[in-house]
């Protein structure tokens, strides 16, 4: 599969303005779903709500701390070039 499929912009789904999306969890899966709803599904971000039980977002993808208390990551991620869905997602700007 190449550019023909990947570069295609999906047509705006009928009635998307009247839909609301509710997402449970703020891990990468849910953050990505919200992103695809907006970019590919033409949904207005204002109609999207994410529920997260913690007061930190990101789920498994963590990283916190400072010099006084020490730093903490529960894990670090090995990745590779062919995370085909991830890289089409991470094209957003850093700021």
């Amino acid at each position: 599969m190449g550019s023909y499929q990947l570069k295609y912009h999906a047509k705006k789904p009928e009635g998307i303005e009247n839909k609301k999306a509710y997402l449970v969890g703020s891990g990468i899966a849910t953050l990505a779903a919200a992103f695809f709803l907006i970019r590919d599904g033409h949904m207005d971000g204002k109609n999207i709500t994410i529920f997260e039980r913690k007061n930190v977002n990101g789920g498994a993808l963590d990283g916190a701390g400072n010099l006084e208390d020490g730093y903490i990551i529960r894990g670090g991620r090995e990745m590779e070039e062919h995370y085909e869905c991830t890289w089409t997602y991470l094209v957003i700007f850093q700021h």
Binding site: G58, L61, D62, G63, I73
Partner: peptide, 14 residues
């Protein structure tokens, strides 16, 4: 770490 490199910019975008 992936919170700084991924989560922060993704959440900000949303």
């Amino acid at each position: 770490n992936q919170y700084d490199s991924f989560v922060l910019p993704l959440v900000k975008w949303l």
